[in-house]
């Protein structure tokens, strides 16, 4: 957590100290964000909520074994950390978590891994698709998450027996395509 507070310095022109203090005091670290950056971060938050919910559900269901279970345990913790990190980057209250449904995707190793590949690959493509839409300072913050999502995708693909890196350059997707991709998991509010 200390590391996260320090790294939020990337968001602020005044540097790590001010941002660190803001994070420590619970005040708005993201108050200086442009509306565009805020929009991108809220989009990212949606993905982190989805991923966190997916791995929590999988671990809660308790049907995973072996390497799939180990993967879920590690990645679950990291997604939880990403969620907190993006919330902190946004600074102020970000509303409540959306509700998700994962059907039978968490009921067996094979189904879980297949869903994990789809969710992680989509996450990487969605984050990459937003690179040009955010300021460079917000990109600096978010890039620390993007490569970890790519590691998760690669790891899930290894477990699925797929090529971990199928192409030389990851193809980005737009926000609308990304949101459409995760629609099946969203419980209509």
């Amino acid at each position: 957590m200390k590391r996260i507070a320090i790294l939020l310095g990337g968001l602020s022109a005044t540097g790590a100290t001010a941002a660190g203090l803001a994070a420590a005091s619970g005040s708005s670290a993201g108050s200086s964000l442009s509306s565009r950056d805020r929009e991108v971060l809220e989009f990212a938050l949606k993905f982190e909520y989805l991923q966190t919910a997916f791995y929590s559900q999988a671990l809660h269901d308790g049907k995973l074994t072996g390497k799939a279970r180990q993967f879920a345990q590690v990645v679950s913790q990291e997604e939880q950390a990403h969620l907190t990190y993006i919330k902190n980057a946004l600074g102020r209250s970000t509303g409540s978590a959306p509700a998700f449904r994962f059907g039978d995707a968490t009921t067996s190793n094979a189904k879980f891994i297949a869903a994990a590949v789809a969710i992680e690959d989509t996450g990487v493509a969605a984050y990459n698709g937003q690179a040009e839409n955010m300021s460079r300072s917000t990109l600096k913050t978010v890039a620390r998450v993007i490569s970890v999502e790519a590691r998760h995708a690669s790891w899930a693909r290894s477990l699925a027996g797929k090529l971990p890196a199928p192409v030389p350059a990851d193809v980005p997707i737009s926000a609308s395509v990304a949101l459409k991709a995760i629609t099946p998991y969203l419980v209509a509010g």
């Binding site: 990487v124 984050y127 990459n128 690179a131 040009e132 890039a143 993007i146 490569s147 970890v148 999502e149 790519a150 590691r151 998760h152 995708a153 690669s154 790891w155 290894s158 971990p164 890196a165 192409v167 030389p168 350059a169 990851d170 193809v171 980005p172």
Partner: peptide
């Protein structure tokens, strides 16, 4: 755009 697409592939390589 090109650099981010390579960056995430390098991360896939690293995890692989």
């Amino acid at each position: 755009a090109a650099a981010v697409s390579i960056h995430s592939v390098e991360a896939r390589h690293a995890a692989w």
